[in-house]
Amino acid sequence: MTSVAIGPTDQLDPRLLEHRRELTGYCYRMLGSAFDAEDAVQETLVRAWRGLSDFEGRSALRSWLYRIATNVCLDQLSGRQRRALPMDLSGSPWQPVEHSLAARRPGTAWVEPVLDRQVLPEDSDPAERAVARESIRLAFVAALQHLPPRQRAVLLLRDVLRWKADEVAQLLDTTTASVNSALQRARATLSGLGGAPEPRPLDADDRDLLDRYLDAFERYDIDAFVRLLHEDATQHMPPFEMWLRGASDIGAWMLGPGAGCRGSRVRAVDANGSPAVAQWRPREGGGFEPWALHILEVADGRVAHISSFLNLDNELFRVLGLTVDPEAR
């Protein structure tokens, strides 16, 4: 992550930087984009730095920062189309053929990934961390984008951050009754989209599955890879609109249009509260290029869904803080 663009870091009050990670998590959930969250937190800290001399402790510093961050996010969301995932846009899966790559949308159309280390608190209670992990899962972040921005803020502040209704009302300059009404509507919308996530630990079996996934991918043993997937597993690959359904079609894709991934280097990371795989693909002429981040949804001991975010503009790995060199740590 980059530093605040207002001069040397030592000009900032250290108290502002203490809240950077949790503000990034909040802005990410609001905006559905690590890129936009980075910008929003930068702007929040800039505004706070400029207004710190007038703040004078009229409220808790953390509450004040969340007020600024909320306003920054609401400004960013004004007039924007909601971000989505490819499976939200098309009811039918695509064929595992090259022509399926013809339909593509700009990065601003898609919900984007984030690494756990960028947004999850390091020293929180294990139960709180489990809730925080679930609240950054891709399906939940995508569902949040269906909510009007102020409802989104209310739900996050109340149900994820556990603020009291009167505290949220003060932050949003509204009434407690309005906050409770907005929360009720937001919960109803999410319920219709599958409901709020339930905290679920990543157990030893999941870790073993991830190790076998990494091994099969790096050896490019597609038979072994397919055996790790549910029969009706799905995969999508933003910025392309296409998505695939069925382990056999995913395998066919990897042996067909995706065959350039043979010989890749892969490494396990934690992203969006889920097991994930960073991939560096062989570069023509030698070496490797940062290629994709694959986020896995695991159910009943197999991979149920793969979200493959391609690094086509070389910005994804930068904003996620992933290395260009697969051997670097």
Rank of each mutant, 00 (worst) to 15 (best):
F55W: 02
R318D: 10
Q95R: 12
H294Y: 10
A169E: 04
R219Q: 12
D211W: 08
G273K: 07
Q118M: 14
D211I: 09
S53M: 10
P199E: 04
V160A: 06
E327M: 15
D206S: 11
D232P: 00
R67Y: 01
F240S: 06
G32H: 00
G51D: 13
L23W: 00
E315R: 15
H99G: 08
G258Q: 03
A204Q: 12
T2G: 07
F309Q: 02
A186N: 03
R219V: 05
I306M: 10
D208H: 14
G91M: 00
P326E: 15
V179E: 01
E122P: 14
R117M: 15
N272E: 13
L155H: 02
L312K: 07
W64A: 01
E18L: 00
G32C: 01
E327D: 15
G51R: 05
N180Q: 06
N272W: 08
A304C: 09
P149Y: 15
D13F: 01
P113W: 08
H146P: 03
D205I: 06
T9D: 04
R283Q: 14
D223Q: 07
H294I: 14
R329Y: 13
L157H: 09
D300V: 08
P197Q: 11
S274N: 14
R50A: 06
Q81I: 07
A276G: 02
L316S: 00
T108M: 12
A186Y: 00
E22H: 00
L228W: 09
C73R: 01
P290H: 14
R82K: 03
A271C: 15
A216W: 05
R245C: 04
L31P: 02
P326K: 12
A328F: 14
D205G: 07
F225W: 06
S63H: 11
L138I: 02
E38H: 13
A40S: 03
P126I: 07
D221F: 05
R104P: 01
D249R: 03
S248E: 13
R158V: 11
E284V: 13
E22Y: 00
L209S: 06
E327Y: 14
L229K: 01
T24R: 11
L157A: 08
K164R: 06
G251R: 00
R47L: 12
L293N: 02
T44G: 02
L23E: 01
I250S: 11
